[in-house]
């Protein structure tokens, strides 16, 4: 009996060993192949998790959107047409920017932003504008000028002359700089027959276009006309001024990103928010649009110190 048991155990041993060998061979072959193939999908899931629970993709999108409303005069975005694409640890955000000239919105720029996690590593901007604002803002080359500032780099007389030479069947966009600080509501009532589309708000830095630290700043402001578009941050806003202030506070934690997206080199939000909270909302300049004749009629307005002509389009005014 003992002999048989011993013999059986001797027979089984090689079978178990052969099976173990086969399994370990399979494991040796399969593990590196499968682990290598899991790296990319797992990284993809981690990327999605980062944009869902880390720095949210919607936060990056909202910051880009809000800063453009506040720093690029007379522009709007259509967030429903934003293109969002995700690749390994990165996100591409593409969208069009629109400008109101006369009674219609025209696409003026295409933005392609490439984020690696929350870092904006590449920004491409394609512009359709015929009259482009200065790419590198300085103290004197900006289109909206505070009353305390000296002469700007553009020649206002020349701009009025160009406007006068345009056909009557055109609509224009104009950047008006005032000779004093005004309330936006007063500016609207003083400029009849046209749309005041964007107002630049005095934030204590525009006298010299320098922040307290000596950095060059650019105008910030908000769209004045009621905006009923579904995606606009000003939709359902009871006070555009308060929405403007709230938006400044919203983008403050992401100021570095906001400054990179915008054409402004510095935003200096802390200083400017504190000034607005203390002094309220006064405007020193506005962007208007309307029929060429109506804009030309403002030449003798006591309100206006400088005018810089923006975009010009064929007649589309129906008001």
């Amino acid at each position: 009996m003992e002999f048989y048991k011993e013999q059986n155990s001797n027979i089984k041993k090689p079978v178990v060993n052969a099976k173990t060998m086969t399994v370990s061979k399979q494991t040796l072959i399969l593990i590196p192949i499968i682990v290598a193939l899991l790296i990319v999908p797992t990284s993809y899931m981690l990327t999605f998790a980062y944009y869902a629970f880390g720095t949210k993709s919607t936060t990056l999108m909202d910051t880009a959107s809000k800063v453009l409303y506040l720093t690029e005069p007379n522009t709007a975005l259509e967030e429903m047409e934003f293109d969002m694409e995700f690749s390994l640890f990165s996100m591409d955000l593409s969208f069009d920017q629109y400008k109101q000239v006369g009674g219609e919105q025209y696409p003026i720029r295409r933005y392609d932003l490439h984020f690696v996690l929350d870092d904006l590593v590449d920004k491409e901007m394609t512009s359709n504008l015929e009259r482009t604002p200065p790419k590198f803002p300085t103290q004197t080359n900006q289109w909206l000028v505070h009353p305390a500032q000296g002469m700007p780099e553009f020649n206002s007389g020349h701009e009025w002359q160009v406007l006068a030479g345009l056909p009557d069947e055109t609509v224009v966009e104009a950047y008006l700089s005032f000779n004093d600080l005004y309330q936006v509501i007063d500016v609207r009532s003083e400029l009849p027959g046209i749309d005041v589309v964007w107002a630049a708000i005095y934030t204590g830095t525009e006298d010299e276009m320098l922040s307290a630290d000596g950095d060059v700043v650019s105008p910030i402001g908000y769209p004045v006309q009621p905006d009923r578009t579904y995606w606009s941050p000003f939709r359902d806003s009871m006070s555009h001024e308060e929405t403007f202030l709230q938006m400044l506070k919203d983008i403050q934690p992401y100021e570095e990103l906001a400054a990179e997206v915008s054409s402004h080199k510095n935003l200096e939000l802390e200083e400017r928010i504190a000034f607005i909270e203390e002094n309220g909302f006064d405007t020193y300049g506005a962007v208007i649009t309307g029929p060429k004749r109506e804009v030309e009629a403002l030449k003798d307005s006591a309100l206006i110190r400088h005018m810089k002509l923006g975009e010009v389009k064929l007649w589309n005014w129906t008001k």
Partner: peptide
């Protein structure tokens, strides 16, 4: 091994679908 891969792929689909819904607001 096959089951492990299938479970991983199913998990991948679920994660991408749920997180994709969170990160793309449109």
């Amino acid at each position: 091994w096959g089951l492990g891969i299938a479970v991983y792929l199913a998990f991948f689909i679920a994660v991408i679908f749920i997180l994709g819904w969170i990160i793309v607001p449109f």
